[in-house]
Design a binder for these strands. Structure first.
Lengths: 231, 231
DNA sequence: AAAAAATAGAGAGCAGTGCTCTTGACGGTG
DNA sequence: CACCGTCAAGAGCACTGCTCTCTATTTTTT
């Protein structure tokens, strides 16, 4: 009864997976603009129109790849964090930064899909926001735990954030519970600093200027950790 | 003689300008992926093939737009800097940051062309690197002048950059003459931090999290100024 | 077990793209 | 004046996303 109904659904699930696998390979080699439903269908020995039974539009395929990408990055970040002693908050932060950079270098086109220019007509559906927060939650947890452990000591060299920031801070505190507004502002700074540096390296802004980005990245992430108040 | 030869060249220059103008308008409304040579030709009352007399490929048109974009951003940054008292280095840095953000918000698709994901097959030709450095030179000059004036006082909360960074620092010192390696590393941090924040706001990473990005941006840029050692 | 309904694939077709090639006209130069 | 280079036009190639119809098969319902 269930097995028979599953017969069709199983082959459907199988084909869906095969489509995303091929699409991910095409994405990795040709980049997002070169991803073509027809090419994927061709490689599957399918006629182009048949693929629309599985993904009603190219954007839907891209959405699937985006979700996969966020999950892959999130998992890489989670594993990097898990590989560190829980009390070594600074080390966890550095490991997590390195994991982001290494994942991005290993999957540049997928990374560009997540953190590059948005496709003009494309509106990210609701399903993406969960996976998109996976890595963010890790950074937040590290900072929150460091604060909770009483080891967070942000250097007092910045002016306090303006009062009007308090409103946004409320929302952001869902990710970094328990910390004051000042730490939240610093967290956003570290967060954008991390991805700003990965973006620049990956998108070519460092070309001919920085030949050893790994060294500078490690150093700057350590510095950002200090900005956060990590020891 | 010259006037007659110019007659043709003048109309050619005129048409070239008209093409880039229309293309820029299309870029602004539809984004880079939606920029179509045929659509531009159509709007000019030209047949599509005729446009290839002026731009041998779509990439060449994009290159022209990229150069224009870098120049526009560079000019905006230069003007912002010029509008400040020379001795107010911190104010100049803030003004310049604000100029970048405002230009990006006003020209999101052009900004994405400059600082977003690179087009896979596209290789930026040599002509772009000059204009691409226009804004960078402004940041560098501010920092170098602050250092020269003796007002640069970077907080001693970071470890010194690793020795292997010295090699890259030599190259980067062409933009920020006279400053020690530590300041150069901080400058890269501020530079990537600035664009990291603009990217996140423009590319949608702040969605539903930060509703008042202008406030946080100003505050974080001030903080980055402090990281640099600006008063 | 037979009938009805849902699903999958095939094929043709539409409108659009970048780009190439050939053809005919016009303008500046010897 | 004759010539040669430049230009626009048009047709055409290979490709894209996507829609529609038709047929075969599988699943569900009667």
């Amino acid at each position: 009864m269930n097995a028979s109904r599953t017969a069709r659904e199983r082959v459907r699930a199988e084909l869906t997976r095969e489509i995303t696998d091929i699409a991910r390979r095409h994405l990795a080699t040709d980049g997002a603009p070169g991803l073509s439903l027809r090419a994927v269908a061709r490689e599957m020995g399918m006629v182009s129109s048949a693929i629309y039974r599985y993904f009603p539009s190219r954007d839907d395929l891209l959405t699937a790849l985006i979700i996969d990408g966020y999950n892959a990055l999130g998992e890489a970040v989670e594993q990097a964090d898990a590989g560190c002693p829980r009390a070594d908050h600074a080390g966890r932060w550095r490991a997590v930064c390195r994991a982001v950079r290494e994942w991005a270098l290993a999957h540049p086109h997928e990374y560009a899909l997540l953190y590059g220019s948005p496709v003009p007509g494309y509106q990210a559906p609701q399903d993406t926001i969960g996976p998109a927060m996976r890595d963010t939650l890790v950074y937040g947890r590290i900072i929150a735990e460091a604060h909770e452990a009483g080891v967070l000591d942000p250097p007092a060299v910045f002016p306090p954030p303006p009062a009007s920031f308090a409103e946004d801070a409320v929302r952001l505190r869902a990710v970094i519970p328990g910390v004051p507004d000042d730490v939240i502002a610093r967290a956003v700074m570290a967060w954008t600093g991390l991805f700003g540096m990965v973006n620049f390296e990956l998108f070519g802004q460092f070309n001919n200027a920085i030949l050893d980005p790994a060294t500078l990245f490690d150093h700057n992430m350590t510095a950002l950790g200090r900005v956060l108040g990590l020891p």
